[in-house]
Design a protein around this nucleic acid. Structure first.
Length: 541
RNA sequence: GGAGAUAUCGUCUAGUGGUUAGGACGACAGGUUUUCAUCCUGUAAACCGGAGUUCGAUUCUCCGUAUCUCUACCA
């Protein structure tokens, strides 16, 4: 049988990190088995409808390249948010509609069938009645459960109440005399006593179904073969199974996924963590890092594998339900940061490899185990061309393509980008903040010039060092490259019998005016001779 | 209260009836360096407890314990 999985979120605004993982596992499982991945929108709760949520969901899935094979499709040129009735949504696939609010009659019809066969019943209790019942049960230390008072109604009584037009719900009549057992693909055999499970509401008083009914009916009519969903659904699976049985349908295989947890091991929540996928995307986390991060919380390829970095292709090839864990996983932001950095490097060096090879097919590329690549060209000219390309890629990555600085002095910007490469790759979204001090005047805190560890323990000594440095700067040209600058300084410092730090520390501070920054040579190179001399002169006077 | 699930370094996890219980993140220390970072090297860090089965249990069974989830006309 062909595998069919579904991701069935309710459109309540943003995409939750946990939902992203559920979606991913369903997607991977379907792809691995060359099956079909379906998206179903579970919007049966009118009160929770959020404008724009469906559009947003589809957009985010597109970002992650996980658009469904079957499911709702956005109109080609959507101008305004979709209306509540979602009539503008079209369907891809022949088992639709894939939005539950458009399938109301179907659920009504099948709820009635359950009543006709004695598996469900009308209930006319008001919310107040139920509240009262529950508080009484709780104070009597009893498990809160519907007491079935409406089940005692005769068919005639029920019909009379219906005819009177009062509001009602339809409840599932759980079999109380037996065990409900099933085999969960990740947990093995699980069983529940029927008498522990409440008579779940199937149709609400507004005529719409609850999750439980809609879920069963849709999974059946959409021919879902495998349901991969979060562990929180485990306890309601017997309700679903009872319905499948009552309808005479074959239930899908269930796999209940471990929860993603807060640091205190409770279910991941927005009170304790940022849980919105969109917000991580906005903060500059890449889709590759997010996927890689989320997949590892709850799944491992097994076989003693020590692989940590996975792309979609690897995952599709390796994913299996046997590798899914039973226990929950604490959300660890540091690992996400590491993965983001790693993926940033991978993608960056992939681009560089491509460009390097284009420039010179015999370029020597050294790959280190931490994903860095080093390039060696045969001549300086090619190296310089390559550096330019490298800087352009960094600018693009940082979103600085259209920055004003690009117009006024792109060469300087490029130099600044090149010397900050490692840090940019950690968080490209913050590149400008990182390098702004090279383009804007800032006031120097004189204390910064001193550093006793470097032998600079007074302002006078610092000034003396700066004068020494200034003379070397004067001998540079505007075109001196990083190496020439470095060599000039090293030679003079050595010749004068001075220590590196004694000169370079005050120089760096004077040029950058920052506590932490790029080095003195890099600063000189980026700023250029004129700007450097000017910054020095301001201090030496 | 009831039901169910789960349990290996701080975290994500590998693994096994006999192993120096492996890797990654993080932490720490040292090295490189003109600062932060990077980079390199190294260190610390775990089988929830108790019985049973067994020559031998972290691994299998049972019982505890702890934690989590569910217990809505939400999903």
């Amino acid at each position: 049988m062909k595998v069919r999985t579904r991701f069935a979120p309710s459109p309540t605004g943003y995409l939750h990190i946990g939902s992203l993982r559920t979606c991913l596992y369903n997607y991977l499982f379907a792809r691995h088995h060359e099956g079909t991945f379906i998206l179903r929108v579970e919007d049966t709760d009118q009160t929770r409808f959020v404008e724009g949520a469906v559009e947003n969901l589809l957009k985010v899935l597109a970002v992650f390249d996980m658009l469904p094979d079957e499911g709702p499709v956005l109109p080609a040129n959507l101008q305004k948010p979709l209306d509540r009735d979602l009539t503008d949504l079209t369907d891809k696939g022949d088992k639709g509609p894939y939005v539950q609010s458009k399938r109301t009659e179907l659920y009504q019809e099948y709820a009635k069938k359950l009543i006709d066969t004695g598996h469900a019943y009308y209930c006319f209790c008001s919310p107040e009645d139920l509240d009262k019942m529950r508080t009484e049960q709780e104070s009597a230390k009893l498990a809160p459960m519907y007491d079935r008072r409406c089940l005692k109604l005769s068919p005639e009584e029920s019909q009379a109440k219906l005819a009177a037009g009062g509001s009602y719900v339809i409840r599932l009549k759980m079999p109380r005399d037996r065990k409900i057992e099933f085999v969960d693909a990740v947990r093995g055999k699980v069983s529940f006593m029927g008498n522990q499970i409440d008579d779940q509401v199937l149709i609400k008083s507004d005529g719409l179904p609850t999750y439980h009914l809609a879920n069963v009916v849709d999974d059946h009519f959409m021919d879902i073969t495998h349901v991969l969903r979060a562990e929180e659904w485990l306890a309601s699976t017997p309700k679903h199974l009872v319905m499948f049985e009552a309808f005479g349908w074959t239930a899908p295989e269930y796999a209940h996924l471990p929860l993603i947890l807060n640091a205190d091991k409770s279910k991941l929540s927005k009170r304790q963590n940022d849980v919105s996928v969109e917000s991580y995307l906005d903060k500059g986390y890449s889709k590759e890092a997010l996927i890689n991060f989320v997949v590892m919380m709850g799944w491992h390829p097994g076989k003693g594998s020590e692989q940590e970095v996975f792309n979609m292709e690897n995952l599709i090839a390796q994913f299996s339900l046997e590798g899914v864990h039973k226990a929950g996983a604490v959300f660890n932001p540091e690992k996400l940061d590491w993965l983001n950095h790693t993926w940033q490097k991978i993608k960056y060096f992939q681009k560089l490899d491509h460009e390097a090879l284009k420039l010179n097919s015999s370029v020597k590329i050294d790959v280190s185990k931490n994903f860095d690549h080093a390039y060696q060209f045969e001549n300086n000219d090619t190296t310089n061309k390559f550096q330019k390309i490298r800087a352009e890629i960094l600018a693009e990555l940082s979103g600085l393509n259209n920055h004003p600085q690009m117009q006024t002095d792109s060469e300087k910007l490029f130099r600044a980008l090149l010397v900050n490469e490692e840090k940019i790759l950690q968080n490209p979204a913050q590149t400008w903040e990182l390098i702004a001090y090279l383009f804007e005047d800032s006031k120097l805190n004189p204390a910064l010039l001193q550093n006793p560890k470097m032998g600079v323990d007074s302002h006078e000594k610092a000034l003396e060092s700066l004068k020494f440095a200034n003379e070397i700067v004067n001998e540079l040209t505007e075109n001196s490259d990083l190496n020439e600058i470095k060599e000039a300084f090293m030679a003079k410092i050595k010749a004068a019998g001075r220590k590196n730090g004694e000169i370079l520390w005050p120089l760096r501070a004077a040029l950058t005016r920052q506590e932490f920054s790029i080095g003195a040579f890099e600063s000189l190179w980026v700023l250029g001779k004129a700007e450097s001399a000017k910054r020095l002169a301001e201090i030496i006077k």
